Simulated assay, not measured.
Amino acid sequence: MHLTLLFFGLSCAWGLRLLRVSAGGTCQERWQRSLGLFLFPPLLLLMTAIALVCMGPQGQMVRWWEGWVSYSLAVGFLCVSVILALRLVTDGWRSLQQVRAYPQVGLQGHVGRVLSTPLPFSAQVGFWQSELVVSQGLIDTFSTDHLEAVLTHEQAHHHYRDTFWFFWLGWLRRLTAWLPQTEALWQELLLLRERRADRWAAQTVDTLLLAEALLQMVKAPELYSETICAAFSSATPRTRLEERIDALLSEPESVQPVRFWVWLWLLLVCLPLLTVPFHY
Rank of each mutant, 00 (worst) to 15 (best):
T4N: 03
L84W: 13
P257E: 02
G76K: 01
R17W: 05
A220H: 03
W171S: 12
I83D: 02
L37S: 13
L5P: 07
G137E: 10
H153A: 05
S254D: 10
L215Q: 13
E29L: 10
I50W: 05
Q124T: 02
E148I: 02
G106T: 04
F278S: 08
R193M: 14
L138A: 12
W186V: 02
L271K: 13
A184V: 06
T176G: 09
V258G: 14
S70L: 09
R240P: 00
R63E: 13
R174M: 07
T204M: 11
G25V: 06
L210N: 03
L192F: 05
Q136G: 13
P103K: 15
A247S: 07
Q97P: 06
L215E: 13
V218N: 11
W261C: 00
T152E: 08
G137S: 04
Q32S: 15
L78P: 08
S234C: 00
F40S: 05
S70V: 00
A123I: 12
L44P: 06
L208E: 02
L107K: 13
V269Q: 07
Q98A: 15
E242C: 14
V80I: 14
L39Q: 00
E131Y: 03
F38C: 02
S135H: 12
P41T: 02
L132M: 03
L119E: 13
C270Q: 08
E183L: 07
A235K: 12
T144E: 14
H153N: 07
V75G: 00
L73I: 04
D206M: 06
L115S: 06
R100M: 15
G59S: 13
P118C: 09
L209C: 02
S254R: 15
V205D: 02
A13Y: 00
F142G: 04
K219R: 14
R63T: 12
Q97M: 15
G92H: 12
F7W: 06
P120Y: 01
Q136W: 10
Y224H: 07
L189W: 00
G36I: 06
E131V: 04
A123V: 05
L78D: 13
S233P: 05
L39D: 07
P237Q: 14
W65Q: 09
A177T: 03
F8Q: 02
L147V: 07
A123R: 05
V262T: 15
H153Q: 07
E148T: 11
L78E: 01
W165F: 11
E222V: 11
V269R: 04
W165D: 00
A177W: 05
Q203L: 14
V133Q: 11
W200R: 11
Q187H: 03
L266Q: 04
L241N: 00
D198G: 04
L267Q: 05
L172M: 11
V114T: 10
W263Y: 02
A74Q: 00
P277I: 02
E29G: 05
C229S: 00
S11L: 12
V134C: 06
R244V: 08
Q58M: 08
L266I: 07
C27K: 10
A220T: 01
G109L: 03
T26K: 15
